[in-house]
């Protein structure tokens, strides 16, 4: 018999850094789930994305068991990372005037594709470029579809 779903918890946690503090502790603990089990599993499954913010959707069941899905990092995080690489870590406060290339936008769009409602990479790139604009990050060069 299929296990009965009791509910969902949605969090964003840095890869490899889950610990029983808030929000994980209170969010899962109040449901009677074993927080330590979640942290061990999450940290192992995100060990190749250390320090990246990862949305995680936890499904929990009536028998206090759970499973979870880790999504791709938010486009905003990937953009900040990309802009920082270009600027160099010596100027962290200048990231607001950072810029990224269309190649970087494409790379981010490719990472995000599984979680976006986009049918084409071009549509995904436009979404990512929109987020960049909101963050004050300029996209240098001409968009591939305008070239």
């Amino acid at each position: 018999m299929a296990k009965q779903i009791t509910g969902y918890v949605k969090l964003q946690v840095k890869g490899g850094q889950a610990n029983p503090s808030p929000p994980i502790g209170p969010a899962l603990g109040s449901k009677g789930l074993n927080i330590m089990e979640f942290c061990k599993q999450f940290n192992a499954r995100s060990q190749d994305k250390m320090g990246q913010v990862l949305p995680v959707l936890i499904t929990y069941y009536s028998d206090k068991s759970f499973d979870f899905v880790i999504k791709t990092p938010p486009a905003a995080n990937l953009l900040l990372e990309a802009a920082k690489v270009k600027l160099g870590s010596a100027q962290p406060n200048l990231k607001k005037v950072g810029s990224v290339s269309w190649d970087q936008i494409r790379t981010i769009a490719e990472i995000k594709m599984p979680d976006l409602n986009c049918f084409t990479i071009e549509a995904a790139m436009k979404m990512v470029a929109g987020t960049a604009r909101s963050m004050g990050i300029t996209v240098s060069g001409t968009a591939p579809w305008q070239a």
Binding site: L11, V13, K14, P23, K95
Partner: peptide, 12 residues
Amino acid sequence: VAELAEIGFDSF
């Protein structure tokens, strides 16, 4: 989330 993650915030 992205900006706060840069200054030490670890979960959201």
